[in-house]
Design a protein around this nucleic acid. Sequence first.
RNA 1: UCCCGAGUAGCGCAGCGGUAGCGCAGGUGACUGUUAAUCACUUGGUCGUAAGUUCGAAUCUUACCUCGGGAGCCA
Length: 464
Amino acid sequence: MQDALKVESIGKKVKLCGWVRTRRDSKGGFSFIELNDGSCMKSVQVLAEAGLSNYESEILKTGIGSSIEVVGEIVESPGKGQTTEVKAETIKIHGYADRATYPLQKKATSMEYLRTIAHLRPRTNTFGAIARVRNEVSRSIHSFFQSRGFLYVHTPIITASDCEGAGQMFNVTCLDLNDIPRKPAEGGARGEINFEEDFFGRPTHLTVSGQLEAEIYATALSNVYTFGPTFRAENSNTSRHLAEFWMVEPEMAFCDLEGDMQCAEDFLKTIFTDVMNNCGADMEFFNQWIDKTVLETLKHIVDSDFVRISYTEAVDILVKSGHTFEFPVSWGIDLQSEHERYLTETKFKKPVIVYDYPKDIKAFYMRLNDDGKTVRAMDVLMPKVGEIIGGSQREERLDVLIERMKSCDLDPEEYWWYLDLRRFGTVPHAGFGLGLERTVQFITGMGNIRDVIPFPRAPKTADF
RNA sequence: UCCCGAGUAGCGCAGCGGUAGCGCAGGUGACUGUUAAUCACUUGGUCGUAAGUUCGAAUCUUACCUCGGGAGCCA
């Protein structure tokens, strides 16, 4: 269908299959059908003349949503709005869509409504464009890492490590919830659940991160990345959170935090560039109808260096800003949304990488700095969507890591395999996690993360 | 989970104590190499759910459900 829109194609005979977007009739004895197959933003205008054998009997019954197959010649269009059109020789109807009951209309509808018809929303301009951009982002992610020699590693979705430390996990069980097996208990009290009778013989969950497993492969194969679904059972009701989302997690051996930050910056710029180069029409659509600043913002980001400031500098900037925040700023607090917004949207007006956070607000596996107070963590903050990447250099020193675990009330015994990586041939290494949906959200300007994933999973939301 | 705001025709909305309205979509007709076509007429509603106040509730009160904005948790 993309070829049918090109001037060079004039004179060629084509077969086009797709769904009718709209039909306009002329009493002059012909109809215009706008046909779209999702391969690109634009629809093809099909000219259906009354001379076609099924014009009265079938073609005039088609409308938005009908699926048809057109054979005809690509000709120059005399009308405005398109350079080419297809003069139909035959039109075969695959399926009608009743115009009175078909939920989509030839007009703008709300995102909230389209979410209730998630099985039909990919037929709209907006969701078609999102699907194509999401595809391009995914393709670009693989291409970026593959071209740099990273190995794609599949980490498990079901995990038995119940303390990955990144939030509330979903339980995975085959136990009969109406008759849960329990261990014997003293004094008639209810005993603990006996997971030995469960499928895996122990409690299991859906993964919240593939990082720890990725570290195993990075400390054997050097540079690796994971790309797959991730699950958080947090009761988050926001436009930036999902219970099931896709995450990219590179893990690089013999790499420090500087290398990690450079990789993250190059990575984001590559994705943005690829989308602008390969999804031009889709991006123009978003820029016109969703957010009039997305193209300008993406170009600006690709052409400029990300700001890099330490947490201490960030706090200093916020304190000296003279800006009154709802949550006062002082060294040691976690940065709030309003603080991140100030840095990315007001102060620098571009992505900001904040690094070297206080150890008390970050995970145990992040490498301790010589000051004993901060760790080699970094967050990439974007205007509007906030944190898009979170990463760190990992603690590779066995004794320091064990101490950190203890002070975080974690049992080193549980992480025996993770500690083995430091025990045998340890290496400095670093990595980060990128939220795919937040990336697509940022690129497209879509306001709600539930609209950039085909079938959103969120609290009380799993209808499709 | 917390704080605000909103649920009225298929969709987008107005009405905010006296019994239901507009635009679009749908239907009918007119007109036209048309572009979210245009014009005329027209069908269509237990006013989110449940209880309460009142002579009378879409309108006031309470609870619940869902959605949106903000916050927390994070990607």
